[in-house]
């Protein structure tokens, strides 16, 4: 069985992708080849294919058919995976977690629900979530999510939907451990604005981190989505 991956193509790090990638189902001649398609151009419903497993980003889960695999943007970044490893070294992580994203105005707000899903897997079940947002007709549009994970962790997640370059900042203030990441400062080339690699991931990562969609996952994401769109609980 082969794979079809829907993704933002500008996010893909081809150098660290080890799988053989083709750009259409028609060109898939071997079962171990992976078809990589643009998530902004292709609808999952048009890809019903018994011979392939389908991998889609969490932001378009509402368009999905049963039996697909969903992946979360945040979970795929190499920096986030390393940060997760460090936080998980603590038996019961205690501290203050801060995530900040600057994202395109056209990006789906479902991204926030996906981040909540990922962070609740890392930091524990959410006890209380509070959402504040500015007037969505004015750019930039800013959203603040305050989360009490109850077991000794509190978090602020902040999203600025704007026409600026994409950026992620993350801070963890734990017990005797402080982690700080800012994609803006991760210029792997000595050229201002060239931080694309900091916010890229491989197709292999997408497949490895994806979650089989079941009712529990759908319910959790829907719950987070309702909170983000509907206010506090």
């Amino acid at each position: 069985m082969g794979n079809i991956v829907l993704a933002r193509l500008d996010k893909i790090d081809y150098q660290s992708t080890l799988r053989t990638i083709v750009d259409s189902v028609e060109r898939q001649t071997e079962q171990n080849e992976t078809v990589l398609l643009s998530s902004s151009e292709i609808k999952p419903a048009t890809l019903s294919n018994e011979n392939n497993s389908l991998f889609i980003p969490s932001t378009i889960l509402d368009q999905a058919l049963e039996g697909v695999n969903v992946y979360f943007d945040l979970e795929n970044y190499p920096f986030f995976r390393k940060i997760t490893e460090v936080i998980e070294r603590e038996n019961k992580p205690k501290g203050v977690f801060r995530l900040r994203r600057i994202i395109n105005m056209d990006e789906s707000k479902e991204l926030i629900a996906g981040d909540l899903y990922v962070l609740s897997s890392l930091l524990g079940e959410t006890q209380n979530i509070q959402v504040k947002h500015t007037n969505h007709t004015v750019a930039p549009y800013h959203v603040i999510v305050t989360v009490n994970f109850g077991s000794g962790t509190m978090a602020h997640m902040e999203y600025t939907f704007s026409y600026q370059d994409e950026r992620i900042e993350l801070e963890w203030s734990g017990i005797k451990t402080i982690l700080e990441f800012d994609s803006e400062t991760m210029h792997t080339l000595g050229q201002k604005g060239n931080n694309a690699l900091a916010l890229a991931y491989s197709v292999d990562s997408i497949i490895a981190t994806a979650h089989r969609v079941d009712q529990r996952l759908v319910n959790r994401l829907n719950n987070f989505s309702m909170l983000v769109n509907g206010g506090a609980h």
Binding site: G95, K132, T134, I144, H156, E158, I178
Partner: peptide, 21 residues
């Protein structure tokens, strides 16, 4: 440790991270 979420009278929203971390 404390995280504050604030709203001003004109709708501006804000976060504040106050700690001895």
């Amino acid at each position: 440790a404390g995280l504050l979420t604030l709203e001003f009278e004109n709708g501006v929203i804000a976060t504040h991270d106050a700690s001895w971390s």
